[in-house]
Design a protein around this nucleic acid. Structure first.
Length: 256
DNA sequence: ATGGTAGGAAGCCTA
């Protein structure tokens, strides 16, 4: 089963790119981030026509996550436990063919001297709690999406330029490492060791043309899922197209 | 030293 993640930066603006990539790559499951639309505005028909079932957790203008699946989608739940006042649509879970698929759009957290940064860290703590809970149940699960964390200085084109960025702060990195230390496996890193492999390139300053990117989209696997991991990669194709998202898909393949 | 681009909403915010 091939599972992909993609921050599309508006599903409505990106629909032609998404449709073309779904036809081309034909992943079994796709977890989307940054839909930037409400549930009723999600272009469901165009995607269902390609043979996908859909679970959406949308929000007007900002955030929004979805799961697309060729196989039936069960046990959908939205939102991340731990803060009843949090109204941002950044988390969705569903069970597909016995695999719990957790799609997330982690807060960016910039600038770090505002309330946005503590919100990011608190959100990560809640994600860690959820991961611990699922690990305790010994479930086969995948936690993937835009983590908005650059794991190491080798995952950014210019570490010095990002020294004060929320994506590289020790507090952000420590929380991501905590998830790995709990026993989760970074799917991409299990099969790819080369530094400076990116999943995001800014629209500004010709970042794509210069390969000035960041690796911030990650797929973490529970031990039961990692046992089935046979391949993982980054599909740079979509980033080079017209009207591209600033992110490109990351994928992993689990054996049956 | 600052602004560059993209998207959505509605005449600024987020990234």
């Amino acid at each position: 089963m091939r599972i992909a993640i993609w921050n599309v930066n508006s599903i409505k603006a990106r629909l032609p790119r998404v449709v073309e990539w779904l036809k081309d790559a034909a992943p079994d499951v796709v977890m989307l981030q940054e839909l930037k639309c409400q549930d009723d505005a999600f272009p469901a028909m165009e995607i269902e026509e390609l043979g996908y079932n859909i679970a959406v957790h949308g929000q007007k203008s900002y955030n929004g996550v979805a799961i697309l699946s060729k196989l039936p989608i069960d046990e959908v739940s939205t939102g991340l436990a731990g803060d009843d006042t949090d109204e941002q649509a950044r988390y969705i879970e569903a069970v597909i063919a016995g695999i719990r698929c957790c799609g997330l759009y982690l807060p960016n957290g910039n600038p770090i001297d505002t309330e946005k940064f503590p919100y990011k860290l608190a959100w990560m703590d809640r994600l860690i709690d959820r991961a611990e809970e699922l690990l305790g149940q010994e479930e086969c699960f995948v936690m993937g999406g835009d983590y908005n964390v650059i794991p190491t200085d080798d995952d950014v084109f210019d570490a010095a330029a990002f020294a004060d960025d929320a994506l590289t702060q020790p507090e952000s990195r420590a929380r991501l490492r905590t998830m790995l230390n709990l026993g989760l496996t970074d799917a991409f890193r299990a099969y790819n060791t080369q530094p400076h492999a990116y999943s995001y390139w800014d629209y500004q300053r010709g970042a794509w043309q210069k390969d000035h990117g960041l690796l911030i989209d990650h797929i973490l696997l529970s031990p039961q899922a990692a046992d089935r991991l046979v391949a993982s990669g980054i599909d740079r194709g979509p980033r080079g197209k017209e009207k591209a998202s600033d992110h490109t898909p990351v994928w992993c393949e689990l054996s049956e």
